[in-house]
């Protein structure tokens, strides 16, 4: 009886776990995994000649076409998202550090304020940058007076797109950074400043390495949506600033070239996967989210 007694409850517990998982996991399997598979088969479909009509097949040329036609869009997406991610990290770090280690009784309120932009329309906020960065607005005038703008304007340039991307995904950078910094024992930083004396060395040797899980999670949560975004390029950039997200959206919804859009989606997924894997290896942490 004793062996059965030890195994029985464990089995029953596992069954409860599976029951708890069932609805949500089934939902994700049906509406996330199967669509991805479906998208993969769509990416290999063969044109029938008439627009929006395709038949099943294994036309790997779709991928070659997608790359040769849209490689600039890919490159732009990765570069814009990369720059925006670095900028977001630089902007988010001081705020996250302050909230985690210095804010005291203001901490809860400041956290609410970081999340609050989620409740203001993403589209309208992006649109608002049109007003802020307009040709006759203070920022553009000032930078122009200092001769810092190559095109003489911000709106409808890559600068505006990158600025929009940086702004829009900032909370996704701040929150994981905050979570990581919050776990650091302040005494470690004190001990660091005791050992190294200079605040910069303390930061480099103690705070920064300890906040690494937050840096990795934050950069991923910023980079991935930024690389796939098309709203910022559409609203703030010119036709020369279009990103891969624009290409996927246009091909799918306007041109109804489903195989092309699907192939582009898969190339985007694959390049993100490769970049993320290399990045996580180099950052030396397996900890995600």
């Amino acid at each position: 009886m004793t062996i059965a007694a030890a195994v029985g409850p464990a089995r029953r517990r596992a069954r409860i776990a599976y029951l708890l998982l069932l609805p949500g996991v089934a939902w994700l399997a049906i509406f996330f995994i199967i669509p991805l598979i479906s998208l993969f088969f769509t990416s290999l479909q063969v044109s029938t000649g008439s627009s929006g009509k395709y038949k099943a097949g294994f036309n790997w040329r779709n991928y070659v076409e997608a790359l040769s036609e849209y490689w600039e869009f890919f490159l732009r997406a990765l570069i814009y998202a990369g720059i925006a991610t670095v900028l977001a990290l630089v902007i988010a770090y001081p705020l996250a550090y302050f909230i985690a280690l210095k804010a005291g009784r203001w901490r809860a309120l400041m956290l609410v304020l970081v999340v609050a932009p989620f409740f203001a329309s993403f589209l309208l906020r992006t649109y608002a940058w049109k007003t802020i960065l307009a040709d006759d607005a203070v920022i553009t005038q000032t930078l122009n007076a200092l001769h810092l703008l190559p095109d003489g304007r911000i709106l409808n340039t890559s600068i505006a797109v990158i600025a929009g991307l940086t702004y829009n995904f900032l909370p996704f950078m701040i929150l994981p950074l905050y979570a990581a910094l919050d776990k650091i024992d302040p005494r470690l930083i004190e001990a660091g400043s005791d050992l190294y004396a200079s605040p910069f060395t303390t930061f480099r040797k103690v705070t920064w390495p300890l906040s690494m899980p937050g840096v990795v999670a934050g950069t991923l949560l910023t980079f991935i949506p930024a690389a796939g975004d098309y709203i910022n390029a559409e609203l703030l950039g010119s036709t020369k600033d279009k990103m891969i997200g624009n290409a996927i959206q246009t091909n799918f919804i306007e041109f109804r070239d489903y195989p092309m859009a699907s192939a582009l989606s898969f190339i985007l997924m694959a390049s993100i996967l490769i970049i993320v894997t290399v990045y996580i290896r180099r950052a030396g942490t397996e900890e995600l989210v």
Binding site: P35, G228, Y230, Y258
Partner: peptide
């Protein structure tokens, strides 16, 4: 990326 989520769902 959201475009991929959207595109794959629409494909399904």
């Amino acid at each position: 990326p959201e475009v991929v989520l959207g595109a794959s769902l629409l494909a399904l």
